[in-house]
Amino acid sequence: MWDYTNKVMDLFYNPKNQGTITEERAGEKVVTGEVGSIACGDALRLHLKIDEATQRIVDAKFQTFGCASAIASSSALTEMLIGKTLDEAMQITNRDIADFLGGLPEEKMHCSVMGQEALEAAIYGYKGIALDHHEGDDEGALICTCFSVTDAKIKRVIRENKLTTAEQVTNYVKAGGGCSSCLAEIDDILEEIAREQETALEVAQAVAIKKEKNPEILAVKNLTNLQKITLIQQVLEEEIKPLLISDGGDVELYDVEGDRVQVKLKGACGSCESSTITLKHGIEARLRERVSPELVVLSV
C-alpha cells in the first residue's frame, strides 16, 4: 500500500471543486485543459473560469480519472488556483502541488506533473496558443513511445525537480516505465542537462569575475562559443520566455552563428503585428544587455 499523507487521503475522500464549469457571464471566459489518457491510467480535465479584465482565475474545477493521488493532486491544484492571476498561476510547478499535499510517494510524482500540465494546457488554450506536439521537431522528439513522452517534457521535469536518475524520470513522467527500452536515452538526456548546468555554472562564474574587474560593464566578452550559447539560452528561458508566455507568446532558440542569434517566435508572437518590436526591443535589447552588445536577433 502506498504511503500517502493524511492530506492526500483527505482530499481523495473529500475532494474540493470536482465537476465542470458551464456558466459564462459577460467578461468571463471558461477554458479547459486536458491531459493524460485512458491508456496510461490517468487523465485530468481542468476547467478554469477567467475574469478577462483582471486576468484572474475566479473558479476552477476538475474531472479526474486516476488513483487516489491523481484525484488529490487535482483537488489541490484547483484550491491553489482560485484567486490567482494567470501570471501567478503559470508559476505553479508540479513540486508546488506535491508540497501542498505534504509530499507524494516518488512513484506518484507523475500525478502532480499531470496537474501542472493541465494547468498549462488550459492557460495556453485561453491565450489561443496551440499546444504543439513537437512532432518531427528536434526539441520535442518522442523518447518514450509507451507513454508518448517527448524529450522536451523530460528535460523540463529534470530541470524543475533537479532529477538525477532515470528511475526518478520514470516516477515523474512515466517515461521508461513501459517496455523500458528508452532508459538509455533518458540517461543521455540526464547527462546532457548535467553538462549544460555545469557550463551555466562556469558562465555565471565568468560573469562574476568580469563584473568584479569592470563593474561598469555588465555584458561579457571572451566567452567560449558554448558558454555564449548557454548564456543566451539561459536568458531566453529564464527572463524572456516568462514575459512572452504571459502575453500568449513563446520563443525558442533556433541557432547562433557568431553574433547572429536566430529565434523562433511562437504562439501569439508568431502572428502578432508587433512581433518585430518584440524581437528588437524585447529580446535583442535584453540579450545585448545580458550577453553581448554586438548581438543581432533575427526571427526564422
Binding site: Y13, C40, G41, D42, C67, A68, A70
Partner: peptide, 25 residues
Amino acid sequence: YIEGEAILLSLNQYGICASSGSACT
C-alpha cells in the same frame, strides 16, 4: 471508466479488502 486503486482505497474505508490489476496498484 474509473481506476482500480481509487476503488480499493474507497473500499478500504469500509474495511473491505480486495485487489486490482490497475497500473497504479
